[in-house]
């Protein structure tokens, strides 16, 4: 029995973290948040060059054939640096399409096809929006779609939960608290569904687990920053990190986040090994990381005092990353409802 990252997994972590440290500095993130397309394109190109887009695509389809655990490590590193990326969309698309749409999956690996996600229907159907599929034609709107720059296709869920590949849409930006990432309202006007797959609870679980990993990274960054700040900032003639009132806040953050890290690993391992509890664990991970992440985001900001509230330190980018992640693909209550349903704890 071994519940730890392998040598290869640690190397993957190091290489992606090393790249992001150099190429997704706070300066770069600020530029991206301010709409600097060049900065965004540079980061996208660098990440694509690292080969991460095909990480979760099976080897037979030209990908690296790695597992969701490895994907979570990459997503965690992205969250740590609040770097925007099409990685989550590519990985969810790979999960859904590798099953019976091999041509699309292999396109993801070689970069020929760039996927966006329009999956709101799976988690949050709304009156007044929604996509319907009628005789292979998609119509309607999808909210908060995650469409990377240069996307060639989107994976869109219809009101019945089935997913379709489409390459024609019109997009309208949806402004959120997080300006580093773009979200859009997509409209489909009778466009052809190029390929379709049945409703599959695994796609939503994969998306939710990756968001949990992203929050894990962002929250770890906030703890690291809070601890570092508390060791330097002086008041009353001593560093504030020597006051128990401040130390205990840091201890509480670490005490909640450390087991959450193990939960993300365990859920990803369960998904990779087709454990019967895998979907339950992935949903638990999403809901739990949402709660722990929110606690860390608030507490780490408080440890920074007034500076945490300003734009000067840029800490708010992490606060907002975690805030958006909490709601994405369903708020904690919705996700726990899914977990309960998957365990047969909800009366039919």
């Amino acid at each position: 029995m071994e519940f730890a990252l392998s040598e290869d997994q640690r190397m993957l972590q190091d290489s992606i973290s090393g790249f992001l440290k150099d190429n997704a500095s706070l300066d770069t993130i600020r530029k991206i948040a301010d709409g600097n397309a060049e900065a965004k394109a540079g980061l996208d190109a660098g990440l694509a060059e690292m080969g991460i887009m095909g990480l979760y695509v099976p080897e037979a389809m030209g990908g690296s054939g790695l597992g969701l655990l490895e994907a979570c490590l990459v997503q965690e590193a992205l969250g740590y640096t609040v770097a925007p990326s099409g990685f989550l969309a590519a990985t969810v698309a790979a999960d859904l399409l590798a099953k019976d749409q091999a041509t699309y999956a292999s396109g993801i690996a070689d970069g020929e096809k760039v996927f966006g996600l329009a999956l709101t229907e799976l988690a949050s159907r709304r009156d007044g929006s929604g996509v319907t599929a009628d005789n292979g034609r998609l119509s309607g709107t999808s909210l908060l779609a995650d469409v990377p720059t240069g996307a060639t296709h989107v994976l869109v869920a219809d009101t019945s939960g089935a997913c379709h590949v489409a390459s024609g849409w019109s997009a309208k930006p949806m402004r959120t608290i997080d300006r580093t990432r773009t979200f859009q309202e997509l409209a489909f006007d009778g466009v052809a569904a190029e390929a379709s797959t049945q409703s599959d609870p695994s796609a939503l679980a994969v998306a939710r687990l990756l968001v949990a990993a992203d929050t894990l990274g962002a929250a770890q960054a906030m703890i690291d920053k809070a601890v570092e700040y508390a060791k330097e900032r002086k008041q009353f003639g001593r560093v504030i990190g020597s006051f128990q009132a401040v130390k205990h806040l840091c201890a509480e953050m670490a005490a909640k986040l450390e087991p959450a890290r193990a939960l993300v690993w365990h859920a990803a391992y369960a998904m990779d090994t087709k454990d019967p509890e895998a979907l339950v664990m992935a949903n638990l991970a999403k809901a739990h990381l949402a709660e722990v992440g929110t606690f860390v985001a608030k507490t780490a900001t408080e440890v920074h005092g007034g500076m945490g509230f300003t734009d000067l330190l840029g800490l708010h980018y992490w606060f907002k990353r975690i805030g958006v992640n909490r709601q994405l693909f369903g708020s904690p209550e919705q996700v726990r409802q899914t977990a309960a349903e998957l365990q047969g704890l909800v009366a039919a």
């Binding site: 071994e2 519940f3 638990l284």
Partner: peptide
Amino acid sequence: RDRLIKLQGEVYAMQANGLRVTTA
């Protein structure tokens, strides 16, 4: 039920954490 599942997330997290401690 929501409170129960919330605790379940924590229980599973502590169990996974325990596996990590055992491995170490």
